[in-house]
Structure formats: C-alpha cells, structure tokens
Design a protein around this nucleic acid. Structure first.
Lengths: 359, 359
DNA sequence: CTGAAAGCGCTTACAG
DNA sequence: CTGAAAGCGCTTACAG
C-alpha cells in the first residue's frame, strides 16, 4: 500500500537536477539556497550567473522541489515557527496570527498554530509537540502557570518571543501593550467626561497583562483622587458570563457610574449583561471596553474602547523572532505597543444636574 | 556561530537510548512508534512489556525526543496537515480551524495554517509551500479560480478534503453545508412571517457555496410563487462596504420588505449599512444573516440567521482527511452539514394592515 | 569556481 | 522476539 503512494508521489531529487545539468548535487543545493544565504548575509554568492540560470531552469522544468525533511535533518533548521496563543478562535489572537502568517510566509517561514485554552498543561504539551517538530522559534502568549514550561524552552536555547503576556526574568524578546497606560487611559477618559465612581471587571487569572491593566486602573484612580471608589471585580476564566451579569447588576444598584472591561472577552460578556439587564448606556452606566470587535461600532450606542494594533503585535513579534533565529547573537529586545482610545457613545459626557467635586 | 547553537540544543538521539538500554536502535524505534502503529492497525505489537517499560523509562530519563525531520525523511510522512482558508481572521474560519486543531493535536497531528485572501495566486503559492513542506494532507477552502491549483495537488496523490466550497469532478472527500437548503431556508422563514418582496445580496465570486445559496433562494422564491420579486445583488469581494449600503438603501426605497445576506462578512456589512441608513429592523426591512457572530445576539433587534455547525465542519474534515492519510484505499466521501435557523427579531412577523396575497 | 564524501537521525525490510 | 545494515535527500566543511 505504501509502495503505491511512493511511486505516485515519487519526487524529483536534487540528484536528478544535478545529472540533467551535468553538475554536482552540491552546486545545485548551493544555487537553490542562494536566496536564504543572501538574507542571512552568511555566505558569499559564488556561482556564475549562467550556471544559476541553467540550474534553476532545469529545476523548474523537472518540477524539482527540495525535500524539506532532508534539508531540516541536515541543517537543523526547519523554516517553521510555532505560534502558541490561548485560543485562535479568539478574535484578538486570530487577528494577530493572521499578520504573523503574512510576514512569515513572505519571509519563507511557515506557521504552526496551537491553542492552550489558558491551561498550563495544554501549553506544556503544545510546547513539547512544537519543539519536537523542530520549529526554529516560538511566539508565545503564555497562560497562568505557564512560566516553568516556557522557561524550560527558553533554557534549551530555542528563540522565543513573548507576546501580549510577560514572564519576568527571561532573556527573550517581547511584544506587548503598554498595559499600565491602557488601564489608566480608561480611567482618564471616563474621568474627563464626568464619571467618578468607576470600577473595573477583571479576571482572577495570573497573567501579566491583566495585572498591569489593574495596576494602571488603580494608579489612575489614585492620581485623580478617586481611590475611595476604586474597586476591582475578578471573574474566573471559562465561567465569566453569569458572574459579569451579577457584578454589573450589583454595581449599577450601588450607584457605580462607569465600568471598564479590560479584555475583549470580558467586553463581550459585558454587552451581554447590559442587554440582559436592560441598561441604558451610558446613562445607567458608562462603559469602556478593550481590543477590537465589529460589535463595538454596530452596537447602539457605539462602544468606546481601548485598542491595540494587532498588526504591530503580529508583525513585530515575527520580526523579533526572525532576528533571533537568523542571528544567534541578537540581543533580546522589547517592543511596546501604545494603546489607542477609540471613542464611542458608551463613555459620552455624563448627563447630570448635580456637580461632582474632584475630591 | 552554528556550532554554538548545535552544542546548546544537542539532542539525545535514538542511539543514546539504545546504548543505555543495551538494545538496538531498531527496537527503540519500534517501541517509540508503537502507538501510531496500533492506530494504523498495520503492524502487530511484538515487544515484551518489560522491554517497552525499560526503554520508555530510559527515553524519558534521558529526555529523548525523536527528531521528526529524520523520521519524515525516512518514512515519507510528517504527521502535519495543512489547512488553507480564505482568511484565518474571518470568524467562520478561525472557529473551524480551532476545531481542526483540537482533533488534529489529539490524533498526533500538527496544523499548518495558510490564508489566501480569496486570491487564486496566493492559493497556488500556499499549496506549493505546504506540499513542499511535505504535509500528509490538506484541508482546503478553495477560492474563485483555484480549481486548477487544487486539481494539480489532488492529481499528485496527496489526500485532500474540500471544505465549505466545492470543486466539481475531483475525487476527494468533502465537508460542506447544504447550501441550497440554507438559501431556501431564508426565504421560507421570511415568507412564513409575511414577507414577500425578499431580495438577496451576494458576491460576484465564483465559489460553489455562494452559487448554491443563490440557487436555493431562487428555487424557494419560485416555489412560493414569488419569482417576480426574486432579485440577486452581487457585490465584489474586498469592496463590499459601500456597495452593500447602496444596495440596501436602494432596495428599501423600492419597497423591498426583506433581505438575505448569505455570508458572515456580508452580514456584518449589512448591519453597518442598516446603522448608516438609520433603518428600523424589521419594520423598514427584515433581514436574515448567515453564520455566527456574537453581534447577532447583542444587536438590537437580535438578528435571525442561518448557522452551520463549525464544530462539525472542523471535526469531520479532519476525520475524513485522516482516513485518507492513514489508509490509502479509503474511498472519498462527502459530509453534508445541515443549516440551522437561529431565530431573531430581525425577521419577526411582519406588521402590516394590508393583507398580502400569496400569488 | 566546483566536486567528492561524510553524515544528519531515523525507519524498514530482511535475516536470524 | 531482536539486530545489522541500507538508505531517505539533503547540506556542509573540505579539498582542489
């Protein structure tokens, strides 16, 4: 049965090309790889133009395609990278992966995807699958409890870029949002529009982005003298729906004027809660959401949110990874994406007859 | 520089395990692959339990991980599949890819993603990249003009499953929606709720799913005696926004009572148009959308739509592919997903004082 | 500027 | 039940 398959897909090898061209397989190999070598800057180009032309012509005519397993086995490189996120069906990550894919393919790399569902054991198993596959590097959005598994991969010497979520103390490149500023930004906008009792709905998940956004919120509340109103609600990932509704309902009952939902998933549950409770936004409660989703502009009223450039997150994380892969001495670097406030009626200036004091 | 990397990631090889265990490398190989062999049913299990235990224990202790490049080179299999869709950032496809990923990983396969942006030349280049990588099989949502490139891959003997979009005349497995029925379903629901002047907004793109949904619409209109109202508008992919708004505006002006938007992308643009035009749904115009998106339930009014099980699309396409990969003689089969109507207020019974005649 | 040769780490008949 | 040996198709020093 296998023999049948074998003969069907019988590949043209480098040997066939070499024979046809009357040169050695080494020369064919050299010609086929000249682009990569040039990109690396590692090897000088040394074959005459006519030889190159003849060999490439013959390769094309014979329909030669290098066997990448053989190439990988010999060279130790696969030109494949792994991208590990919490869930590729999560719009935030699927957008990023799309940009990574774009730049990776045009750089001659191929992308293996994996989702962790925010579970450390899945992260670990994904990392082991991908490293066994021999990926040249990894872009990782870690999850709570994932630090050890990621550290082990980093220690093995494999190039890693941390995306969106940090792990302290690792010598790796990083691409993340300025989360503290993003958290503070929500407070700033709401404050400027007359809201004072501003609360935050967050996760109890131990990932840096969440923690930093909370920190930004806290600091900003302090800075405008509202620390007495500061309150952070924490929901559990995977069980968010009901608790968000409960939290929002309770908050509105207590006279909370505005709430911030610092991830796209929380934001969607927040809108669901608003609908379920029949709240008038922003009169019953103002809100600022996070990330991007088409619903924010389609909803009535439009939803103000703090966005981050998924394009930059994707493109930069690939670029930083590529540098590490193609030049082992590249020092680690960090790229910080600035949050962008996208206005919406959900945080429109507060309508009120009584004046608020700042104090 | 490379030597440095080499020593850092110096792998434990099968030879080290064999030496440590005092057996041949062949036996180690056999033990390491026993699971896959069992799944194939192709080779009988023949090593004593104690030997297996000893070897696996040693492999674990030495932290042995098989080199998959070597394994692929020798065996001709990579345990990697390629998934080609139009855009992985499109919710419909990212959902499907997520399910494929789930089942693929648990079956020991890894997933390479690629997006075509509905461009045949990108499809072709993606297919060539993925086949060069030596994927064991491909799940393909083709695009307009992609038939030739896909046919060539199929002819090469590589297992292929067509997802969501058909190409006639190919001996491959298929997983698709019952598109004709889905198109008809929209008409049926609207008709039952009193709407008569029902039009369809579609693409001018040559993919089967679109064409079949149009066909279903046309047939259903004929069957309920409304062919005189049947009208299909075609927008151009990549330039949909403005034209949808124009089409909707014009339709409402002509007294059209309901419109069907037969893809998720068209649906989102439709909602944008409705907002831009300030239409009251369903009074100014009823609407039925397609696929799933959180906005449909969050929008006011809620949006009725025709959904398809992305889980089934993903899981089945992997299963059919796997069968083909692991048993070359498996005949092609087709799995049809039934459309599901999910109700919403956007197609609520028509409020009107004048009675409509069916004729 | 070009070639001969070693070898990457496995899997797979085949022989015992 | 187990081992010796060939070889998958490349890349890479090295020699000329």
């Amino acid at each position: 049965m296998f023999r049948k398959v074998w003969t069907m897909v019988k590949r043209v090898t480098i040997r066939d090309v070499a024979r046809e061209a009357g040169v050695s397989i080494a020369l064919v190999s050299f010609v086929m790889n000249r682009d990569h070598r040039r990109a690396d800057g590692s090897v000088a180009y040394r074959v005459s133009d006519e030889t190159v032309a003849r060999i490439t012509e013959i390769a094309e005519r014979l329909n030669y395609h290098p066997n990448s397993a053989a190439s990988s086995l010999r060279s130790g490189r696969t030109r494949t990278i792994g991208v590990v996120v919490s869930d590729i069906a999560n719009r935030f990550f699927s957008d990023i992966v799309r940009y990574i894919e774009n730049v990776a393919y045009s750089a001659g790399y191929t992308v293996l995807c994996a989702s962790t569902d925010e579970q450390a054991d899945k992260l670990e198993s994904m990392l082991s699958v991908l490293t066994n596959k021999g990926v040249d590097g990894l872009i990782i959005a870690t999850c709570s409890g994932g630090a050890d598994a990621v550290s082990r991969v980093v220690d093995s010497g494999l190039p890693v870029v941390l995306l969106d979520r940090d792990i302290a103390g690792l010598d790796v490149s990083r691409v993340m949002l300025d989360n503290v500023r993003a958290g503070a930004m929500g407070v700033g906008k709401l404050y400027a529009n007359g809201y004072r009792r501003i609360e935050l709905v967050s996760y109890d998940m131990g990932i840096s982005s969440i923690g930093e956004r909370e920190e930004g919120y806290r600091r900003a509340m302090r800075e405008v003298g509202l620390q007495r109103f500061a309150r952070i609600h924490r929901t559990t990932y995977g069980n968010v729906g009901d608790s968000v509704t409960r939290i929002v309902s309770d908050a509105v009952g207590r006279g909370v004027e505005a709430m911030i939902f610092p991830t796209n998933t929380l934001s969607l549950y927040a809108l669901q809660a608003v609908n379920a409770l029949g709240l008038k936004i922003p009169n019953d409660m103002a809100m600022i959401c996070f990330d991007d989703n088409e619903v924010f502009d389609l909803y009535n009223p439009t939803i103000a949110r703090i966005g981050q450039s998924v394009e930059m997150l994707g493109v930069r994380s690939f670029e930083l990874l590529r540098e590490k892969i193609e030049c082992a001495d590249t020092p680690s670097s960090t790229y910080i994406v600035e949050p962008q406030f996208i206005d919406g009626l959900s945080s429109a200036p507060r309508l009120t007859d009584k004046k608020h004091t700042t104090k």
